[in-house]
Design a protein around this nucleic acid. Structure first.
Lengths: 329, 329
DNA sequence: CTGAAAGCGCTTACAG
DNA sequence: CTGAAAGCGCTTACAG
């Protein structure tokens, strides 16, 4: 590998001058500049980032901690983050917890040792240990999707979006509304969305029937199973609508209903959240909520950049959303 | 930040000993070991990767050059790669060319300057310049999805898979088969899959009607438009089946057909490639080819690891696939 | 079993 | 406008 010393020698200047040229700070004579430029393009020289980082304490890399890489939401978010980081010449180091809370901590440490300039955390749960770990970290951390105490967070409007969707159902005169959720260990998806469901039901004086509620694990199959459970355990009185906290689970639920000969939405209406591409193309097309994930990625990227610059950034934000009314409701 | 020197001092040993402890090479007395261990856990010390990399010339990072981050294929592949890299304690640096060939070269250089230990390239085209650049690179590079001369490549079985799909169509007695492809600058998707289409048509003595062929750009919308073009420019004689080189375009094509009142597959059959999740849940479900992208990710990861170790690895491989027969054909 | 010393490739005061 | 020198935090022969 050719180094800055080689370039300096070949150009007949000191490495200080080459460094100045590289970083365009300090004066370099036109003459020196030209010779250096020439040599660099001849050799294809690229400064070593490791050496640079060791010296400057900046790596130009930010870390992203994802619950799961191969997910539509993840890839949209990453795409958004990448968009803003690219402009700043920053790279992205990807990390995947596979939904394991311990790994969130492990990766936080790893990213520290790799001296990431900043970290974006897409947490699924937010335990004590995680918070302690973050607090001790000498690197700016921001969170997307969950509100994490003590650090800037951008959350989705889970409560409002879920309430709106429930209102839509209620407005269509549904009184028996079922619910397919996920574990409450996930505050945003498991807990808040369910709370909105229950609150609207109660506010409307509607009965919250436990047997109309089931829990899945985000997968399409689990939505299928949850729907099956709701239907089979309620021979006499099945719900006329089901609110699913996720498009994938809603897709599974519809799959089961169609299989059993139910008409959607005539017999049972189905609603989801997330606006997966799929939701527009299944039949009937799915009524859902668009969370603008890619833009959320951009926004959280900007937030991280701002906190890295020590700016007094608005700490807690909620991202926009919109209801998409289609044919399943 | 606490450094190895701090640890050494606090533990009353030299930093050499601490380093030996950290990397578990060379002897360290039980006593020293315990003190060091203790101090490290107290301080939460993590060795600086930049310093380590500068010294050892290994970063523990591999780079991935993707045509587009937020794509189902990409995220499956990355997930597979991550799976094998995780086992080796390696991290992934993500890079997105946005389908711009110049960026492939740019990112190759960037990853060099970041001293990636290896690079996985998901190229979309393979020009001269790219090949020259790779050749000059002092880092192992492997390619997935396209055969790139001079480096180990894992390709999908584009020709065979497309031929099989065409045979399936022919077997269902289709004689007028249309085609929706992409630009031929993409050898694998644009060129090879089309060649298979034409070869089968000719081998069967079927007419290759130019007006039954259209070109999209991978997007669902472009599939819609391509289908529209085929239908509207053939008032008298429309094809009875259309082979689309991509599930997304097939989905768009079906969307247009359904809109126009055509029945799929009775009036026109539609086939795709890629097994997008969606393809199972649209109506009718899409007949397609599963390329096992995640496993391909694992395989290319292993190939990179092997080349990094200088192993005499099988240079050119083709990944397995399977035809999935569903209801659209 | 352990430590002193050199060196990886940069940047940055400092002095000229 | 330019260079000599120190130092970033590690690892690795080498010597004991």
């Amino acid at each position: 590998m050719t180094t800055i010393n080689d370039i300096a020698q070949m150009a007949g200047v000191s490495r200080t001058t080459v460094s100045r040229f590289l970083n365009s700070n300090g004066y370099v004579s036109q003459e020196a500049r030209e010779r250096i430029e020439q040599i660099i393009s001849e050799t294809g020289y690229m400064p070593s980032q490791s050496a640079k980082s060791l010296r400057t304490k900046k790596t130009g890399v930010i870390g992203i901690i994802l619950p799961k890489i191969s997910t539509e939401t993840s890839s949209r978010v990453v795409s958004g983050i990448n968009k803003v980081m690219k402009k700043k010449g920053m790279q992205i180091l990807l990390t995947d917890t596979e939904l394991d809370p311990d790994k969130e901590i492990e990766y936080l440490r790893l990213l520290k040792s790799r001296q990431a300039d900043g970290i974006i955390l897409l947490a699924t749960n937010i335990g004590e240990r995680l918070q302690k770990e973050i607090e001790a970290l000498p690197i700016p951390v921001v969170a997307l999707g969950q509100e994490v105490p003590g650090i800037p967070s951008l959350t989705y409007a889970d409560y409002d979006a879920s309430s709106d969707m429930m209102q839509l159902l209620v407005g269509k005169d549904h009184k028996k509304i079922g619910f397919i959720g996920v574990s409450k260990t996930d505050p945003a998806v498991g807990s808040i969305r369910q709370k909105a469901y229950i609150d609207v039901m109660e506010r409307q004086g509607l009965e919250v029937n436990e047997s109309w509620m089931a829990e899945g694990d985000f997968s399409i199959e689990s939505g299928y199973e949850a729907m099956k459970q709701i239907i089979t355990s309620n021979r006499s009185e099945i719900p006329s609508a089901v609110f699913c906290v996720t498009d994938r689970m809603a897709t599974g639920a519809m799959e089961y209903l169609k299989e059993q000969g139910f008409r959607v939405p005539e017999d049972i209406a189905v609603a989801g959240i997330g606006d997966a591409v799929m939701s527009k193309y299944i039949t009937p097309s799915l009524t859902t909520v668009d969370y603008y994930n890619e833009e959320a990625g951009e926004a959280i990227g900007e937030m991280l950049l701002a906190t890295m610059e020590g700016k007094n950034y608005n700490k807690k934000m909620m991202h926009k959303y919109r209801l998409i009314k289609r044919d399943s409701v």
